[in-house]
Simulated scan of single mutants.
Amino acid sequence: MQSKPILTVTETTRIIEAARAEAERNQWLVAIAVVDDGGHPLGVLRLDGCAPIGAYIATEKARTAALGRRETKQYEDMINGGRTAFLSAPLAGTLEGGIPVIVDGQVVGAVGVSGVKPDQDAQIARAGVQSV
């Protein structure tokens, strides 16, 4: 039987706080979501002033990154590159801003961010990922 690390409340909190610090340092009003390796929400934070839909989009970006085992920007690039059939895939968060959390070569979850420009969403998500 294989074993792998999992995200606990401790890591989830650390990720959200690191992502929040990056967002606040830049004065970006965003939502931040952390999911486990199956895409199930572990934590969501919507900063004051972020549109309510941000929490939904952030969660879907995180879910897509976890299930797909890759950054969501790769899906966006495929679609924008002409692979429009991928739009029928059962993933709702195929926009930049979802980053998997990888520990010892295993995807253990993901972070999704929504609320600012795509590369800024990804910057915030990466700050969260780098905290673990």
Rank of each mutant, 00 (worst) to 15 (best):
residue 4 K to L: 14
residue 131 S to T: 07
residue 102 I to D: 13
residue 32 I to M: 01
residue 10 T to A: 14
residue 64 T to R: 02
residue 125 A to N: 05
residue 100 P to F: 07
residue 66 A to F: 08
residue 100 P to A: 00
residue 15 I to H: 00
residue 77 D to Q: 14
residue 79 I to L: 01
residue 6 I to E: 15
residue 85 A to C: 09
residue 76 E to P: 07
residue 44 V to N: 09
residue 26 N to I: 08
residue 32 I to D: 01
residue 69 R to W: 00
residue 105 G to M: 15
residue 121 D to W: 05
residue 68 G to K: 00
residue 41 P to T: 04
residue 28 W to T: 03
residue 106 Q to F: 13
residue 99 I to F: 08
residue 28 W to S: 10
residue 66 A to C: 04
residue 15 I to K: 00
residue 117 K to Q: 15
residue 38 G to E: 13
residue 94 T to K: 15
residue 77 D to N: 11
residue 57 I to N: 01
residue 13 T to A: 13
residue 41 P to W: 05
residue 95 L to T: 10
residue 73 K to F: 09
residue 46 R to V: 07
residue 115 G to A: 06
residue 90 P to F: 04
residue 62 A to C: 13
residue 121 D to I: 05
residue 51 A to T: 14
residue 16 I to K: 01
residue 33 A to C: 11
residue 6 I to G: 14
residue 116 V to K: 10
residue 33 A to Y: 02
residue 64 T to Y: 00
residue 120 Q to F: 06
residue 54 G to I: 06
residue 16 I to R: 03
residue 29 L to C: 11
residue 105 G to K: 11
residue 43 G to K: 08
residue 40 H to F: 13
residue 72 T to P: 01
residue 54 G to D: 10
residue 95 L to K: 08
residue 27 Q to W: 13
residue 24 E to N: 08
residue 65 A to R: 00
residue 110 A to Q: 08
residue 89 A to R: 04
residue 123 Q to G: 06
residue 56 Y to W: 13
residue 132 V to I: 15
residue 107 V to Y: 07
residue 67 L to W: 09
residue 88 S to Q: 14
residue 52 P to T: 11
residue 10 T to N: 12
residue 124 I to Y: 04
